[in-house]
Each structure stands twice: as C-alpha cells, then as structure tokens.
Nucleic acid binder design. Structure first.
Lengths: 340, 340
DNA sequence: ATCATACGTGAATACGTATTCAAGCGCTAT
DNA sequence: ATAGCGCTTGAATACGTATTCACGTATGAT
C-alpha cells in the first residue's frame, strides 16, 4: 500500500487486471464488464486511488481548465459575474485558473502566455482589451477566447456584452421625459468599448429630441476620477440638472460628492442614473436608478459559446449583446405617467 | 514547422542539439554553455516554443498551482484578499485555481478532492471550516493547507486570522468609554471561530467594567439576518444605545435599517461599530467606525507560511494572529479625550 | 607528456495516464 | 460443426518534459 501516490498501476495489480482496464473504469463512456468494474472499484477504494488529472490532460490534450482574466475587482459587478462563472463552469466539469491583471498590454500578454503554458482549454477575459497580435496568437494556438463585458472591433473575436448602446439611449429618453435639459455624462473609460457605446447611445437618445449632452467627462471607471468630475461639473455657473454615470460603481462616488460635499438633494436638485444594477444599487443608502446588466445571462452566454468552441460545435465568432431593462428607483426624477 | 504544438524535441532538432539540452536551457539553475544557450533560444524563438507546464509538473511533482477555496464573495473583504493573494502568489511564480464553494461539509470535501486531483501544491481556504477527516486526508496526501480568516481547534492545522478576541475587546472598551451601557451585539455566525472569538472578546471587554451584553443575536454573516436582528432589537421597550456588529458587511445592513426604516440618527441615538474596515466603511454614506483587519499582512503571512511548508522549510503548524487597530469614524460616539 | 578533475552533453528512462491494435472469448447463423 | 461477428481485455505505445548516468572533452597540475 503506497503512501503518498497511488497510481492506476497499483490499482491494477491489486485488482489483478491490467492498467488500461483501470483507466477504462475511470473514463466515462468506456465499456467494461460489470464484474471487472466491481473489482477495480473495490481495489481503488481500498488503496484510495484517484486519477491524476495532469497525466490525463497530457495525453488527452484537454485540461478541463478555463483561464479567467479579470481587470477590476473593486467593481462588484465582476464579483457577481465571478460567482456565476465559477458555478456554471464547475457544473460543466471545468475548473478555473484565475488571474487579476492590470489592463496594460504588456501585463495582459504575459498573463495569457501563462495560461497557455498551463494548457487551458479556453480563456475568458473580463473587462480587458487585447491587441490584435494577441488574438492572432490565440487563434494560431487553437485556444478559443471570449471577451466578457468588452467589445472588440475585430469581428473574429467573440464578445459578450449588454446592449450598451440601447442602454445609454434608454437613459437619455428617461431623463428627457423627466423634464431634464441639462444632462451631463460622466462616462466609462473611453478606452473601452463599453464606455464608448454607452456614451454613443446616450448621445443618440438625446439627439432624437434635438438635444446634446450638457457636458461629457471621462470617469475612467474610477471612483476618484468620477468624484473629481462631479466636483468640476458643479464648479461652473451652469451646473447640470441630471447626470448619467457610466457605471454604478462610479455613480456611488458621484452621489456621495453631491450629497455630502455639495449638500445637494437627489433627486430634487439633481437626478443620477447609473449602469449595471449591482447589489448595492438597491440598498436604501443609494436607491440608484440604473440599467440592469444581466450578469446571469451574460455568463451563461459566455460559457455556452466558449464550450461550444472547445467542443468544435461552434466555429464562428459572434458578437453577443444581451438586453437589460432600466430599473427605476429613487435617484432620478420619474417622468409623469412613465410606463414605457 | 509544426503548427499547433511545438515540443522541446522540435526545438532540439532545429538547433541540432539533444532534447535534454533544450530542457536545461528552460530550467532555471541548470548550466549550459553560452553558445548552446544561444542556439537553443534562437530555435525556440523561431518555432515559437514554450515549455508545457503539465508535462513539467508531471515529472517534477510540482504544479506551481495553489488551490483557493472561498465561501463568501459578497463580503468585499474577501475580494480585497483575493486581489492581494493573486498578486502575491503570482509574484512568487504560482498560479491560482479558484473555487467558490458553499460552506457545507459535503461541498467542501468534493471541492478539495477536485483540487487534489489537479495536483495543487497547496490549498488556501478562506472562511470555510473543515472536518478533521478532511484535514487528516490532506496531511496524508502531503498537501499543506492554510485557513484564512478562520480558526480551528485542531492545533495541527495552521490558520491566519486577525486578533479577533482583542478586537472585540477593543470595541467594548471604546463603547463603554463612550458612555454606553446598553450595548448589544449582532454577532458573526457562531458556527465560525471568527464570530465566536469576536463575541468572546466583546464580552470580556464588557466584563472588565462589570457589564454584560444588552443582547446578543446571531447575524449569520448575512445582510438579511442582520437586518432582521436590528429590527427585533428595537421592537422591544428597552432598545440598545449601541450595537457592535460582527463585520462591516452586516453593519451596513444594520445602519440602513436604523436610518431608513426606523428613522434613527447615527451616532446621536445609536452607535454602530463594525469589523473588517472594508473599503466601503470609509465612504461618506457610512463613515463606519470599525476594527481593521489588515488584509495585506494576513495575505502575506498566509502565503509565506504556505510556501515555506511546500518548500519544507517550515514543518510546524502555526496559529497566526495579526493585530489591527480600531479605526474611528463617525458611526459611533467618540469618548471625550479618547486617545488610547 | 600524463593523469586527475570538472564540466557540458546525449542516451536512456521515468512521470501516470489514454489510446491503438491484436488477440481471446462467447455467441449466432449456416 | 464451423465460419464469422461483436465484445472485452491486455500489450505496447504515446503525451512532453526532467533527471540519472555515463561518456567525452578541455583544463589544470605535476
């Protein structure tokens, strides 16, 4: 009875069968006669045998591991997504190798290389942009990748986002209907498609009413930058009467500046609308009106597409957009008779 | 030029050397002559070779991967810890296989088995308790494990926590000095050492002044349970004038119930103290007085001990406690002349 | 010039499993 | 009774690397 490591060969000897037979017993889908199976399982149980996943992966070429790269974790939207991802992938028999990486080109490249060295079957990148060189490299390597919550111009990479353009548009419509005319936008980082698309939709929505944004400032997905933006918007003699903030995480910072530093009442003096509908948005302290990004469905779409690519069922890249409703709470004035 | 996979043998042929030589070039610490190294690196570069970590792990027995099991992710303390863990381990050359698991015995066992099958070099369990059977199994397997933010009676498993008893005591002292006499406690889950130790310290701190808790309710580390507890505490004719809540995450729920449902002023009518000092605690909306759990130092201690165990440098289990200060903000009355 | 030493290199092997292939077996059909 | 078929099993091999061992060469000392 070997102490540290017990291999399939040990089990084979114990059961009086060959090593391949042991392998077959532990490989789903392989046929073995009932009494063989019984003997092998008994021996395995007795010795405490468990298949070595590494050795298995080496020969099958399937590591049953997905690489996950995350840029921001301070935004709770991503922790919610991480939770769903873990559950969904685990249910499908996959494990997750996770890396938190800053969104710099060099960092991302090295991190992806790390994952490839570990023979991951696929890669999910959340809120990370990639160079086309890198996506080429992945294509060459045959490792499928999905961008989560970030789009890409390159049509050959698949991305899963919410309908950011439509979302921005909905917000504009809501605020205009609410009687606002001086509507500013503290945008998501303009280096990210997410930030750009929400802005574009917002502008389109205003344009439909012959309006333009009162002001647009890049909040860089950062609390500090957004707080600074909020202060600067109100340091002029023509402050906005409503602000659409590029995501909830930034919106909380804006709300706090307005309430606690500037002493403004929300929504009496200023309406605030966010984007994501993270858990905190529903808290009494914020009651944030916001566009819901359905993390569940986004995760499901991501995993489904990725696994289809791995299985070879699906070969085409897709740009998947998932629609989300405007969730109306108390941080923005509600238009009379609003029903939509 | 092989397309999908290029192996060390391909590089060897290209460079006109043997496969072991290629291996040596890519194994730090192995000596190779300069011109060999040059030729091999050139060939590797040309073919796009990268060592296969799986094959390497299979033979060395070192996967350079750490398994991480997390129970709660809605409590932001753990996302902060996760961030540090990722950075620290990556800097040391380790990757992370992450699993989010509910804190049920069966679930945890199966998850640990999963990690063992993947040949992880060590395991970190954050806020999950384990059976002694499981810790025996790990000992037998020779895979070191560290409990993060959770203690264990068994002295043979190492745990890293903050000084929970002292923390609870500090809070009691602070509130008593502040003139409070009806001090209640909405505790952390009493199934967890963390929750129990904070309560015990709190009671000891009160006892030093001849006091007892006004009431103690288990908040189960849950927002809902804590909110319900807060409501029940004020549904009597003798409500508390201060509440020590078992962690920040629960404290936010309590604050919201008091402010928005019961219309109470904090800290004028009730003082609230939390535990953890998560990022949100410093936000203007909460300004929560709380005991800081130094996530950075806890992570460093965890990683250092774990890697020492893996290297064999350290063989003894330890119970590591890291002290954290009381961070005074505005959610609790500040004693006159408080200096400590 | 000769021997000893040290060092760099290649041949062989091991890690633990899945898979190909041929062989053995029992069964049915003629 | 025998040829043929399908099914189960074992022998051999492959996956891609690190490591042991033996060998050859260059270096230094005598």
């Amino acid at each position: 009875m070997p102490v540290g490591k017990v291999t399939s060969l040990d089990v084979a000897k114990e059961a009086g069968v060959s090593q391949p037979t042991v392998s077959r017993v532990f490989t789903p889908g392989m046929k073995v006669s009932p009494d063989m199976e019984r003997r092998v399982r008994a021996a395995a149980e007795k010795l405490g045998y468990r298949p070595n996943t590494l050795a298995r992966s080496l020969i099958t070429g399937q590591s049953k591991t997905i690489g996950l790269i995350l840029a921001y974790l301070d935004n709770p939207f991503y922790t919610e997504a991480l939770e769903k991802l873990s559950q969904t992938l685990r249910a499908k028999g996959y494990n997750i190798m996770i890396i938190l990486a800053a969104n710099h080109a060099g960092e991302v490249d090295s991190v992806v290389q790390d994952l490839l060295d570990h023979q991951v079957d696929g890669i999910i990148m959340a809120s990370v942009s990639i160079s086309s060189a890198l996506s080429d490299r992945l294509k060459e390597e045959g490792v499928p990748m999905v961008l989560f919550n970030r789009g890409q111009d390159d049509p050959s990479v698949t991305s899963v986002t919410s309908a950011n353009f439509d979302g921005g548009k909905k917000v504009a419509e809501f605020l205009v209907q609410g009687g606002h005319r001086k509507i500013a936008h503290i945008s998501g980082w303009q280096g990210a498609s997410t930030g750009r698309d929400r802005l574009a939709g917002f502008e389109a929505g205003l344009a439909a009413h012959g309006l333009k944004p009162h002001a647009v400032v890049d909040g860089l997905f950062s609390r500090e930058a957004s707080a600074a933006a909020a202060r600067s918007l109100f340091a002029t003699d023509a402050p906005p009467d409503a602000i659409f903030v590029g995501n909830d995480h930034m919106a909380f910072a804006v709300i706090e500046v307005l309430r606690h530093e500037l002493g403004l009442d929300i929504p009496e003096e200023v309406s605030i609308v966010g984007y994501d509908d993270v858990t905190l948005a529903a808290w009494d302290s914020f009651q944030l009106t916001t566009v819901r990004q359905p993390a569940n469905r986004m995760v499901e779409a991501t995993v489904e597409h990725l696994l289809d690519r791995i299985a070879g069922t699906e070969t085409q890249a897709e740009r998947i957009e998932i629609d989300g409703p405007l969730i109306i709470r108390k941080s923005a004035r509600i238009p009379k008779g609003w029903k939509e």
